Simulated assay, not measured.
Amino acid sequence: EWLQFRMVTVRRRLQHRLDKVLERLHILEGLLVAFLNIDEVIHIIRTEDAPKPVLMERFGISDRQAEAILDLKLRNLAKLEEMKIRGEQDELNEEREYLETTLGSMAKMKKLVAKELQEDADKYGDDRRSPLVERDAASALDETDLVSADPVTVVLSEKGWVRSAKGHEVDVVGLSYKAGDKYKASAQGKSNQPVCFIDSTGRSYSLPAHTLPSARGQGEPLSGRVSPPSGASFMAAVMGKEKDAYLMSTDAGYGFVVRYADLLANKKAGKTVLSVPKGAKVLPPKPIASTDDDLIALVSNEGRLLVFPVKELPEMARGKGNKMMSIPGARVADRVEFVQDMQVLGPQDALTIHAGKRHLTLKASDLEHYYGERGRRGAKLPRGFQNVDQMAVERKGE
């Protein structure tokens, strides 16, 4: 609207100047007549009582032109010079042509306004005193924006019942479970975060943590909130920030790195994240602290241990992943050979191997013996520790 106002203002200014130029040209034509007929003009002025109408009739000039001639003092009339009058006429005709052309073209009017604005900015402009700050686009409030960020522990049972307990200091195994049911998995986070559940087919589902039933009871079936495929069971629960990294894998020895944001699913039926080879089982996702420095340790049911860097795996949103440990597909399908357990550890962490009632702790220096390239078979653990039940990470400093 200001620019429209500016266009009107400039147009009025140019039109006003054009009117003045045309009026002056008109007068100059009359003065030129007076110059060319100076003696006769002086005679008429001296002898006639009303010289104006006589001048108008004699020379065919207008009232305004005759008035301009009569307004001239005698000494000025004597000084009239044809070259001076014609020179002013040429200048004014050039200006008239510019004004008429500009007024007749919207493009030239805009160009003139822009030029004048730039000149004013260069002459009078200074640094802005009130800063301009870019803000995110306005959006409707999300339900979670109004939820307090309290620490919670989401607990999943073997039968797929879910509940949420306040705080992180929760004895998840010692909670009350229904007859024939027991603890399966848990995840710690905030009440305003979503929690992701992974099922045995590699699908991911997500629910707002604050909508889950309280741990004071025994919870409710997760299948009432989401729609997993027939026969699928829930394997794990995960809570984190959108950019948090996790290791997704199957016991066929395949895996990849995924970001928590890619695990979120806004549909009741969830979404496929992990492709599961024939006969293989889904392993619980493992959090990755550093994709550059962390290590992956895999142990097979035959007692082979392989350790390699996380950075050798690709980061993907979904898929089968890359081969982490070399296990023939047929042996996995027949459940003859598979990954017994998998852990992610830091470069200085220790790894404890549990085999029955015995356990063996391998320090960072001891683990170097089991280092290898991704996709290798791994090295055999010492006798007596090859029948591994599970592994545990002993964090340095804990």
Score class of each variant (00 low, 15 high):
Ala379Ile: 15
Val113Arg: 07
His369Trp: 06
Cys196Tyr: 04
Ile44Thr: 03
Val307Gly: 12
Arg225Cys: 04
Pro131Arg: 14
Val54Lys: 13
Ala137Thr: 09
Tyr370Trp: 10
Tyr246Met: 02
Val258Pro: 14
Pro382His: 08
Glu242Lys: 14
Glu119Arg: 11
Ala114Gly: 04
Asp349Ala: 00
Lys178Tyr: 06
Gly125Asn: 04
Val195Phe: 05
Pro284Glu: 02
Phe385Tyr: 05
Val336Leu: 15
Ser105Leu: 08
Thr102Asn: 01
Ser275Trp: 06
Phe256Val: 03
Lys84Glu: 15
Asp120Ser: 09
Leu77His: 05
Met316Phe: 10
Val113Met: 06
Val388Pro: 00
Ala179Phe: 07
Ile44Lys: 02
Asp349Met: 00
Arg216Glu: 12
Gly321Pro: 07
Leu306Asn: 11
Asn387Cys: 00
Leu14Ala: 04
Arg24Leu: 07
Gly329Pro: 06
Asp251Leu: 09
Ser290Phe: 12
Arg129Tyr: 03
Ser191Phe: 03
Leu345Ser: 04
Lys52Arg: 01
Glu302Ser: 14
Asp181Gly: 01
Asp145Trp: 08
Phe308Ile: 08
Lys380Val: 10
Leu362Cys: 10
Gln348His: 05
Lys178Met: 11
Pro229Phe: 02
Leu263Arg: 05
Arg358Asp: 08
Thr144Asn: 11
Ala138Gln: 11
Ser176Lys: 15
Ser200Tyr: 10
Pro131Ala: 13
Glu158Leu: 13
Gly174Val: 01
Ala34Cys: 10
Asp244Ser: 09
